[in-house]
């Protein structure tokens, strides 16, 4: 493979998979790693990289706090780059969300003393598209997509 072929291939399709326990110290690792991978989509602005970091931070914090409230479980993150679009899938096998529509509402929180209930609102604000699938007792999968704004301007 010559350099040109290598470069062409780089920006078209790529993926990375992470698997780690739901320890709070892994939250920073997850958001930094996903953002570092997203750099391969060069058209993202600095602000957009920050939005990616925030969305990942919110989703992984949810896994740590809510999916596995009294235990440590595994979190799987898959990140795909396809035609300049970033897809992030964050999956846990935790307790699940009883009412996804309610959880997505701004200000909703199950722990009002410590939390603001802004997690899903931030994720929605930071990404182009967000989808949540959850089954009680089996876990939650959050799928988020983002494309550099200037490509569609």
């Amino acid at each position: 493979m010559n350099i040109e072929q290598c470069h062409n291939q780089m920006s078209e399709k790529n993926e990375v998979h992470l698997r780690f326990p739901s320890l709070p110290e892994n939250i920073a690792f997850a958001r930094s790693t996903v953002a570092a991978f997203a750099v391969q989509i060069e058209s993202f602005t600095e602000a957009e990289y920050n939005e990616i970091r925030k969305a990942v931070s919110e989703a992984v914090s949810n896994c740590v706090q809510h999916a596995y409230p009294n235990s440590v479980g595994m979190i799987d993150i898959s990140v795909f780059i396809n035609e300049q679009t970033l897809t992030i899938i964050i999956k846990d096998q935790g307790v699940g969300i009883e009412n996804v529509d309610l959880a997505k509402e701004s200000d909703f929180t199950t722990k009002p003393d410590e939390n603001l209930g802004l997690g899903f609102s931030f994720m929605t604000a930071c990404m182009d598209k967000i989808e949540i699938q959850s089954i009680l007792g089996e876990g939650t999968t959050v799928t988020m997509k983002k494309r550099p704004e200037k490509l569609d301007a």
């Binding site: 925030k54 919110e58 914090s61 706090q65 003393d113 410590e114 603001l116 209930g117 802004l118 931030f122």
Partner: peptide, 13 residues
Amino acid sequence: SFTDSTGLGAILG
């Protein structure tokens, strides 16, 4: 340079 909702929760706390 970065906050998320749990960080903001700590400030509010």
